[in-house]
């Protein structure tokens, strides 16, 4: 009887292995296909530039950009440092102040009525246009770039966190009230953990915005930084250097985004919904 009953189960492992193989195949496809596509685009670019002998000032071949990347490496690194630090600083300040304002909006009806429509308004306007004002107010040093980076990273954090703080199910909050939980307990045990997935989606937007803020600031006025280097290389018609600086910028952007994504993984492993 028991033999009969276990027969289908015993037959299952090969099927499960097949499922796993299929999953690995899917994973390889998901990673391999975009990489293959990117490689194909680079290959076509290289081929077309050589075939039509495009002048390097207009469009250098990927191989020329790679060569410039290697030769200008120490130089790029020097310029990447202020850009990275200012973006990181702007992002951290945006995260701290944005979360603080979102908490205020969640807990004060008066603050919500007065401020929230204005926050949404600022979220919608093209904030890049305000960058020169920050230079006028705060000078040409790194303070103005930090402040501008904070300014544009701030709004996505506020809006995402405020939305998240309203996401706790009303019955859960009712339950807390029934057990006479303090507002602080409700915040730390229920409302903030429920908001975390929203907070992180806001932070991921903010970190990319913070880098854009610093680059725009460097475009306007700076003596160092990758934005400054791009503008400088453009004035010298050093197109390969522009592209090499952009590649370095991509690395900075990916690294900062990766840090936030890693933090998200760690936090949501504890406070996720699975």
């Amino acid at each position: 009887m028991s033999d009969l009953a276990t027969t289908p189960v015993a037959a299952a492992p090969p099927a499960r292995a097949a499922v796993r193989r299929a999953a690995i195949g899917q994973g390889a496809l998901r990673i391999g296909l975009p990489l293959a596509f990117a490689a194909a685009v680079l290959g076509a670019w290289e081929l077309l530039v050589r075939l039509y002998a495009v002048p390097e000032v207009i469009l250098p071949a990927p191989s020329a950009v790679a060569a410039r990347l290697v030769s200008a490496w120490p130089f790029l690194l020097t310029h990447a440092v202020p850009t990275t630090l200012e973006a990181l600083g702007g992002f951290l300040l945006a995260a701290a102040l944005g979360t603080a304002l979102a908490v205020l909006l969640a807990y004060s009806r008066l603050a919500r009525l007065a401020l929230y429509p204005n926050v949404v308004f600022f979220q919608l306007i093209p904030k890049i246009a305000l960058a020169p004002l920050f230079i006028v107010w705060l000078g040409i040093g790194s303070t103005s770039r930090l402040a501008f980076s904070l300014f544009i990273g701030f709004f996505p954090v506020v809006i995402a966190t405020a939305t998240g703080l309203a996401a706790a199910p009303p019955e859960m909050l009712r339950l807390c009230r029934a057990y006479s939980a303090s507002p602080w307990q409700v915040f730390t045990a229920v409302r903030f953990p429920y908001a975390l997935p929203f907070v992180f989606s806001g932070l991921k937007i903010a970190v990319t915005f913070a880098i854009i803020g610093v680059i725009v600031g460097e475009f306007i006025t700076a003596q160092a930084g990758l934005g400054y280097l791009i503008l400088f290389a453009a004035s010298q018609a050093e197109t390969a250097l522009i592209l090499a600086a952009i590649a370095a910028l991509c690395v900075v952007g990916l690294a900062l985004y990766g840090l936030v994504a890693l933090a998200e993984r760690l936090v949501l492993a504890r406070y996720g919904h699975r």
């Binding site: 859960m172 339950l175 057990y179 307990q185 229920v190 504890r270």
Partner: peptide, 22 residues
């Protein structure tokens, strides 16, 4: 609806009122 906190274990959810009542 059961309204359990998704990040707590069954036991921690059962103990939740105790925590809230300090």
């Amino acid at each position: 609806d059961a309204t359990l906190l998704p990040w707590l274990s069954a036991r921690e959810n059962v103990l939740f009122p105790i925590r809230m009542m300090r």
